[in-house]
Design a protein around this nucleic acid. Structure first.
Length: 824
RNA sequence: GCGGCGGUGAUGGAACGGUAGACAUGGCGUCCUCAAAAGGCGCUGCCCUAACGGGCGUGUGGGUUCGACUCCCACCCGCCGCACCA
């Protein structure tokens, strides 16, 4: 073979086998003097084969893991599978293949590809959430939460997906549709299992301040928790003698409340309307509202509708009788299901008032004018507002008035400061088969009894028919369902619902720390050593669900003294999506899917990994370009050819030390290599500038090509440095080239340090400006004094041409950089 | 509506307040070759000029500054999240 070419197919398997054989990336739980570093990518849901997004996710995490190892840290970088879930079950219904078989097949495919991509995983800690050895401890955590009252069963209006035949958590309903299948959800009154995440609302909020997460993810969580500070104010219906508290964030507008509205679901609506002339209308209206789809009802733009109840309530601040209505723009699930309406200062109330011809009374006005503003004035608080038409509070500053009114209400027993949240408790039961069984038994005599810890795991039984029928398919496994009460030994039945798969993934990162422990879920000593995760990497789509549930779990387990920390993920990086070449999200229906298997087959894992991180900033979405992957391959080829050529030149004397006192072309290469070391190190440390790190190595390689006249030692040094720096991105090629040049294993070498001597040159190019415009450039000594630079600059022809005939009013000198001459 | 992010060549994208467009793609030229592929080298923001050189350029309009893609104000456009949440 004459032509020597870069052949990833020859290089990559060689190193993969070595790493597998030697268990190179395994790490022990015995501490040593190195700093720990836990690098984790979100675990994949195994379905079919991994897609291009997985490649980016794991290439990204692997680059960070490798870098941390080489700067001397003890890195934990494990892998597992989120193996329970609906797609495998739906597939089972269609094909009859057991979800376990389909899932295990897919797991094998993922494992295969992670090896072929060369991801540096500690395989000794591999886990699958669908294995009894794992879900035994998921059940154990459930029992711990149950003991603490954080897991409870309750009848509630819940979201039901008629297609998937199961209930859903609020977080899994997107625009009124099932997150999984897109079917419109219904509301059903059902008894279900919940986790009391609302107990942790404030701590979930406060904890965000101490973690290094992207601002938009924190914002999404804050919005989801939706804390509002305000007051509860009691409005009384005198006829029936019933108090109706409402929640408001604007107690300062209380004097502007001109009517009162209840949600159609409010339990007192019929009682109030009874015997009034509106009774029939109210019945009709409520019935229609309740059957209306989630989507139609939730439309903020549709005209306001409602019906009078024929009753009034008393406004507690002024004793005024204001009319009561029922209207579907008021939601039962937020606040108290009833509101005071202030049409002058709330858009929705205003729309309703216009529709029903109700009075609109302004009670907040700009401080400098007495007149009430015309029309609407919904703007949020500004500092220069005062109350008007507000009895004893008139003329008070609006913000002070807000507190003053609440204080007054509190004293009179008509209200109190209050906080409201959008966050609801986490509904975790699912009427489906392929999930973790809930370890609860219902005894005819003792009622609800938790399965004793020693009896765990409650194993998922095999069944024949996975078809959901409104209740869990597990109910058909009679032998399994019928059991004995652990308390009294009497007849009992098992809970047949399974848990939401987000429960499984809310603690897997703890299990990795102590993955083979059969005695307990984890050894606290070991977990406290590894946790929290130093760098977590995944897609933004989990910004709320997984990332908030996990935080809740850790806080709850911390409170049980099972953990010594309160946040699971110290730093979070959310990678952008890889879009199809057309700029759209990849989907088989659009035919724009790029299969990583084909890419890796054609260009090798190193080129694929390098390209997905070179495409642009890793946190941004980017469209796939087939010419781009070719460019990455070309770059790696160039590096390989240098290694091949210079490795042969070196004969049997490997080594690539920085040559001493380099001159001319040698100096250029040595300086460029040191510049690249410095640049890549900074890009890897601060912001994750992988694209610019890779481009720095490209520049270094280009420089070696441009200087064939340089000495072998300098070229070998520059090339070995390029290999060393590209290792986190293209580990196989880097190992190969580094070995050719030095005989060493690059991953065992410390990360290179830039030689400060070689970062600063003796001379630099002085930029000469006139009035801020570049007019000339001239070489100058590094460290030259200001007046020397000024004279140099004024002496250049370019500057003189623009200074002649003008008066110099000022000269700005930036040492080692530029001189700006200001003329008039 | 609320909140977050962004707008730079033909394209993806670089630029601690200091040479705008690194690197890559595409394009043009050139070398090697019988030829091609592969590869090497060079050019490549727009306008004027034969050239030297000059003018204009980072969504729009203002401001701060010796100097602004970068900081401040207002606006336009795009993307993402939440949304009749009181």
């Amino acid at each position: 073979m004459d032509v020597r070419r870069y052949e990833p197919k020859r290089i990559e398997p060689k190193w993969q086998e070595l790493w597998a054989r030697e268990g190179t990336w395994e790490v022990s739980n015995e501490p040593d003097d190195r700093e720990k570093s836990y690098i984790l990518e979100m675990l994949p849901y195994p379905s079919g084969e991994p897609h291009i997004g997985h490649l980016k996710n794991y290439a990204l995490g692997d680059a960070i893991a490798h870098f941390h190892r080489r700067i001397g840290q003890r890195v934990l970088h494990p892998m597992g599978y989120d193996a329970f879930g609906l797609p495998a079950e739906n597939n089972a219904i269609k094909t009859g293949v057991h979800p376990r078989d389909a899932t295990n097949k897919s797991i094998a495919a993922y494992r295969h590809w992670f090896h072929r991509w060369g991801i540096s995983i500690d395989w000794s800690r591999e886990l699958s959430t669908a294995e009894p050895s794992y879900y035994r401890w998921t059940q154990w955590i459930f029992l711990k939460l149950f003991e603490r009252g954080l897991a409870y069963r309750k009848e509630a209006a819940v979201k039901w997906c008629p297609h998937d035949q199961t209930v859903l958590a609020n977080e899994q309903v997107i625009d009124g549709r099932c997150e999984r299948c897109g079917h419109e959800v219904e509301v059903r009154q059902l008894e279900q299992w919940f986790f009391r995440i609302t107990d942790y609302a404030d701590r979930l909020l406060d904890g965000l301040d101490g973690i290094d997460w992207p601002e938009h993810v924190k914002t999404m969580q804050r919005n989801w928790i939706g804390r509002s500070d305000g007051a509860e104010v009691v409005f009384k219906n005198e006829q029936l003698g019933i108090d109706y508290p409402v929640f408001t964030t604007r107690p300062d507008t209380l004097f502007g409340a001109t009517f009162f509205v209840m949600a159609p679901e409010h339990p007192d609506v019929f009682k109030l309307a009874q015997g009034t002339e509106y009774e029939d209308q109210v019945h009709q209206y409520v019935n229609r509202s309740l059957t209306e789809s989630y989507e139609t009802r939730g439309d903020a733009d549709k005209p306001k509708t409602g019906v009078a109840l024929g009753r009034t309530v008393t406004n507690p601040v002024n004793g005024e009788q204001i009319p009561m209505f029922v209207a579907d723009y008021v939601l039962m699930e937020y606040g108290t299901g009833a509101i005071m309406a202030v049409p002058a200062h709330d858009q929705r109330d205003y729309d309703f008032a216009v529709e029903f011809n109700l009075p609109i009374r302004h009670v907040v006005a700009p401080a400098d004018g007495d007149a009430a503003p015309e029309g609407r004035a919904f703007a949020a608080h500004s500092e220069n507002e005062k109350l008007i038409n507000s009895g004893q509070f008139t003329a008070v500053n609006a913000q002070e008035g807000r507190d003053a009114i609440v204080t007054w209400l509190d004293r009179e027993g008509k209200g109190n400061p209050s906080v409201s949240y959008k966050l609801r408790d986490w509904l975790i039961s699912r009427q489906r088969y392929w999930g973790c069984p809930i370890p609860i038994i219902y005894c005819e005599r003792c009622g609800m009894v938790p399965v004793p810890e020693d009896d765990l795991p409650v194993k998922l039984p095999d069944i024949r028919d996975y078809q959901p029928k409104g209740m869990s398919p597990l109910a058909t496994a009679e032998d399994w369902v019928n059991t004995k009460c652990p308390n009294c030994d009497g007849k009992a039945r098992r809970e047949t619902d399974t848990m939401d798969t987000f429960v499984d993934s809310s603690w897997y990162f703890l299990r990795y720390c102590d993955a083979r422990d059969d005695e307990r879920a984890w050894d606290r000593r070991v977990v406290d050593m590894w946790m929290p995760v130093d760098q977590y990497i995944g897609g933004v789509e989990h910004a709320i669900l997984h990332l908030m549930y996990s935080r809740f779990f850790i806080k709850a387990l911390h409170d049980m003294e099972l953990l010594g920390f309160e946040e699971p993920f110290h730093a979070l990086f959310t990678q952008g999506m890889i879009l199809g070449a057309d700029g759209y999200k990849m989907s088989s229906s659009k035919g724009n899917v790029v299969a990583p298997s084909e890419i890796v087959e054609r260009f090798g894992a190193d080129a694929a990994r390098t390209y997905v991180l070179f495409m642009g900033p890793a946190e941004q979405d980017a469209a796939w370009a087939s010419t781009g992957i070719e460019g990455a391959f070309r770059f790696l080829s160039r590096l390989w050819r240098l290694g091949d050529e210079l490795g042969q030149d070196g004969g049997n004397a490997p080594g690539a030390e920085q040559p001493p006192n380099p001159r001319d072309a040698d100096e250029i290469l040595v300086r460029k290599a040191n510049w690249a070391i410095d640049k890549v190190t900074r890009d890897m440390t601060g912001t994750f500038g992988f694209n610019t790190a890779i481009s720095a190595v490209m520049e270094l390689v280009n420089e070696v090509y441009r200087h064939p006249e340089a000495g072998a030692a300098a070229r070998r040094f520059a090339t070995a440095t390029a290999a060393s720096l590209i290792f986190p991105f293209a580990p196989h090629l880097a190992s190969e080239v580094y070995e050719l040049l030095t005989g060493q294993r690059v991953w065992e070498e410390p990360w290179p340090d830039a030689d400060p001597e070689m970062l600063l040159a003796d001379t630099f190019q002085l930029v000469c400006q006139v009035n801020g415009k570049v007019r000339d450039r001239i070489d100058a000594r590094t460290g030259a004094p200001r007046d020397e630079l000024e004279q140099l600059c004024l002496g250049t022809t370019g500057v003189q041409a623009h200074v002649d005939g003008h008066e110099i009013s000022k000269v700005i000198v930036v040492p080692d950089k530029l001189v700006n001459v200001v003329v008039r």
